[in-house]
Write a protein that binds this DNA or RNA. Structure first.
Lengths: 190, 190
DNA sequence: CGACGATACGGAGAGGGTTTCCGATTTTGC
DNA sequence: GCAAAATCGGAAACCCTCTCCGTATCGTCG
């Protein structure tokens, strides 16, 4: 790629990230082009449409998820808190811009093109699950992708409905309780 | 309302239902007006914007939910199957048109305008929960609205991601397991 | 029945968004 | 430095939402 083209590409990406965070995934492409100081033609040559642009951005963001896993595991929390904390981290990560969670979640499991996009999310989630399995804290039979979908669903709802942090946490707790070896019931047998 | 106005109103509503089912909730308003045989002005006088039109349509659909409850309860299923069947009914109902599930779920709990729209859903869900509570099959602490949100999230994901029926069922089963009193755990009590 | 005010209609058009196209401009290799 | 190739910018074609207003229809009252 020619040097000036690379500059345009990078600047568009940086600006698009900002604009999508500010205005959601339906922000005007013209606005992005203008703020990046390029013409519309330039924007569209690099990214044929909005989806391509979002693809690249989401890929970057999801890549950061592995860092969140390590951090979560290192905290040494008990199973239920660990799971909830991890889910909260996922929601936070994939909700970077309004509409992003819904788009990403919709793509989960699409064998089509964006395999690599959610792959990072899936393997990160997998490692948390394995950590809990090793401690016998988790019920069998739940597929990683399915769990990602559920958490993604919560993220999408939280995002679209403007849910408060506590409400979101409650939803994630419900999911966690479904996965764990019934902790609530255990409490009831002293 | 004048007789001709009523005719227009009804025809727009009928056509909009069809178009939204065919093309999703982002279908062109012009298209709806054209198919209904009215001008754009007429459409917008009756329904100031797309949301109003969707509101009226969704309200109708949600109203049918109570019927689904009665039917589900009457089937006399064991708790887990009852819950899953009910959740499936909800998903089916609120996914009538593409994008509908996401919109409805986003509105859940919005004290703003569409209270009456999700009210039906919430009370229907409540009656299923009470039925299960009465049998001691359910864990306490889960709010009806929260559960509706979770199920709505699944519906939105299933809708947007084109999930298969079995995948959707798995997700709903996970939620159900989080709500039910887990019999397995009881075994581990000393 | 006929006519008049109220009500409703339709479609042109303003405003804004996406995407394409191509002449002008910049970069690069030689 | 020069020409070819790559890239740029923004005008313009196209579609969408929503508004405005002259025209047509309805309902009622004399």
């Amino acid at each position: 790629m020619r040097a000036d083209a690379q500059r345009s590409y990078d600047r568009i990406l940086a600006v698009a990230g900002d604009v999508f965070v500010e205005q959601g995934t339906n922000a005007s492409m013209n606005e992005i082009a203008k703020r990046a100081g390029v013409g519309a033609g330039t924007l569209y040559r690099h990214f044929p449409d909005r989806e391509h642009l979002l693809d690249v951005l989401l890929k970057d963001w999801v890549a950061q998820i592995q860092a969140a896993v390590d951090q979560t595991l290192a905290a040494g929390l008990p199973p239920r808190e660990l799971l909830i904390t991890w889910f909260e981290a996922v929601v936070r990560h994939i909700s970077v811009h309004r509409g992003g969670a819904a788009r990403l979640t919709a793509a989960l499991g699409n064998t089509a093109s964006m395999v690599d996009k959610w792959q990072g999310l899936a393997t990160a989630n997998q490692s948390v699950l394995r950590h809990l399995e090793a401690r016998g804290a988790i019920r069998g039979g739940a597929d990683t992708i399915q769990i990602c979908r559920l958490v993604g669903g919560v993220a999408a709802v939280a995002d679209a409905g403007g849910l408060l942090r506590d409400d979101t946490r409650d939803l994630l707790a419900l999911i966690a309780d479904g996965l764990l070896v019934a902790p609530a019931a255990a409490l009831r047998c002293p």
